[in-house]
Write a protein that binds this DNA or RNA. Sequence first.
DNA 1: GATGAATGAGCCTTCATTCAT
DNA 2: CATGAATGAAGGCTCATTCAT
Lengths: 209, 209, 209, 209
Amino acid sequence: MPKQTFFNLPEEKKEKLIETAIDEFSKQSFKNASINKIAENAGVAKGSLYQYFEDKKDLYKHIFDIAGSKKQEYLIGWMHQLQHLDFIEIIRELYVKGIEFALENPKLAALANHFIKESDVKFKEEIMGVGIEKSNLFFEELIENAKKNGEVSKEIDTKVGAYIITNLNTSIMDYTLNKMEYEDILKHKEMLLDNVDKMLFIIRNGFKS
Amino acid sequence: MPKQTFFNLPEEKKEKLIETAIDEFSKQSFKNASINKIAENAGVAKGSLYQYFEDKKDLYKHIFDIAGSKKQEYLIGWMHQLQHLDFIEIIRELYVKGIEFALENPKLAALANHFIKESDVKFKEEIMGVGIEKSNLFFEELIENAKKNGEVSKEIDTKVGAYIITNLNTSIMDYTLNKMEYEDILKHKEMLLDNVDKMLFIIRNGFKS
Amino acid sequence: MPKQTFFNLPEEKKEKLIETAIDEFSKQSFKNASINKIAENAGVAKGSLYQYFEDKKDLYKHIFDIAGSKKQEYLIGWMHQLQHLDFIEIIRELYVKGIEFALENPKLAALANHFIKESDVKFKEEIMGVGIEKSNLFFEELIENAKKNGEVSKEIDTKVGAYIITNLNTSIMDYTLNKMEYEDILKHKEMLLDNVDKMLFIIRNGFKS
Amino acid sequence: MPKQTFFNLPEEKKEKLIETAIDEFSKQSFKNASINKIAENAGVAKGSLYQYFEDKKDLYKHIFDIAGSKKQEYLIGWMHQLQHLDFIEIIRELYVKGIEFALENPKLAALANHFIKESDVKFKEEIMGVGIEKSNLFFEELIENAKKNGEVSKEIDTKVGAYIITNLNTSIMDYTLNKMEYEDILKHKEMLLDNVDKMLFIIRNGFKS
DNA sequence: GATGAATGAGCCTTCATTCAT
DNA sequence: CATGAATGAAGGCTCATTCAT
């Protein structure tokens, strides 16, 4: 958690700093990202960073939380409609929203993508806090409900099903970000959505009873 | 590509060096792996490394190729039996062999896993050379053939299908390696195989016509 | 000397600050002690410290004086009984009181111990002011008187005698503080006193006429 | 232990480096001594130091060992004469040799003096290895023997006696080094020796039977 | 009178690579 | 062909002090 000193900063400076940090952490893994560069690019003395944050990890955690909040914000308006959608539609919406978020916030998405790839499990837990299994839990509940509705076969293993859906989601993000250099975002998005639908076609069959 | 000087080395020295490099690259990402440590642990002069290899990347590429060869070697005896197996069985065998390979060669598997997670696309292409799409191609052909046999629905998009199967494969590797600390490998393997079958149950349904 | 602003502070704040400073200076040498940490732990703005004190040294000096006063306070009630004691008894009491003081005020004792070990002589003089020779003077007078009483041999060099007694005193303090981690303080104290008596046995013989 | 690379260095460079390190460590405690300054003053790249030594502590340990060897070398020629000397004479010789050594090698003596004052006990043990109690043991044996000869009273506690002698020794070193700025070393030495004799007068009485 | 943001030098350590021998 | 000494930039982090508000 940032120190109070950080929150006292003028809005402009705070933003500049966060933006710079997002930039750095979106380009590099946690370990390879450089506090020095962040300080320099943000036009802030190296020592100052340590007045705002405990250490590198603290800064990262904060940036990571921001990314999470932004995504949550992005999803929140849409969450209440879930009840009207069936199993596959929900997943589709999730994948699509994920892509849209990544297209609109490529750096945040890249940041998250880097995080997912970190291999140090303890580090990941430290950063995420409890929430690390939330995503899986969400999908597990989704599948359980769909089983009750008869949308999903009862022969499906819930945990493994959730695992598949989660992994395909991150794969999509990966794919999306790698292709992002294309400037023709619109056409690009169409293509991505097209692939999502093709993927969902398989998933639907895979899970249906 | 290593310089000629490397190939002229006595077998023993070559092996020691490669083993040490594998060890280092299996523990760290490319950037974080340390040439210094490799030289030291291999008992080789730092300067010598640069007489055997152009630079760090060259060494890595060589190590990476070796890992690839080892895996290929591992699969090769089994490849000719493919014709007797149906679509899902082939995939199953591939996943299972992958797990077995990882259990038997954890360092090589970890090395490959680290590579997959590298985010610098250009770097990845540079390392893999053409082969980067080979894996996908294999699965695409597999799917195409299965479509002809009627094992797989013609409505399935081949590329997307291959993409799914590939990604699930790497997910399995990741999962396997993270759980590897368990000492009770046998039980562990059973559990992994169990999950593979549950996963394949979904995939089979997803692809079948 | 603290600035007037410091003395104007509410008692509570003053005490908190001093307590925190004692804590820090008891754990570290002057140079390694951190003004930053003192400010933080005392809940005082860093800038404020510089409004209360000239600089780090000024703060230290004040803390050091306090430690001295506390010890003096500790001894003062006992001082008037000196006349009834003979030479060795006085020294014994001084050693014992020192040990007791250290056991009851371990931080102050540690602080003093750190100070004694400082190697920068100028620094020490600056901190102690005139008082640096007071301790020696006290022992010198003691010896002189004991010489007159016939308790101490006239062949003893007074200054050297005082030097020995002083140094053994600090050695005892050092020893006491290093052993302080033991929780069984009572037994620990017994052992210390036992050693003091063994030491005094030697001293008595050494000085007696 | 320094790395092999250090021992391979040309004699001149090695010496320059060691001399510089001695200089730094004689002026500062271990913690406050600066690797940066050593590198700079020795005209060596910062990185090079780490080719020669594992880390700061490794360098320090080496310097410390050198100081120990030098002192041992200094004493060794004299050690075999011990048998002809009585208890007090041996101690006197030891004190005197210590003073002479300090006068001739003030930096080494200062280095040792700094070490003695380190408060981190684990650090001290790490640096000294087993030898940490050797000095005390030497004096204990000395006392035991003197007891048998009748030179020392059997009522004296051996350990406490050794402790006193050791502590007075370090006190003398401290005193010697602090006065060292005087240029008139000869007169200075006379004065020191005079004090030693006065001190020994007391010790002799203190221990004798 | 109080605040705390800002600073830049300094700390120890690791790094990939070069090059004279 | 092998060696390993040399390098200087970069890494994260701490520090005592200043000064505008």
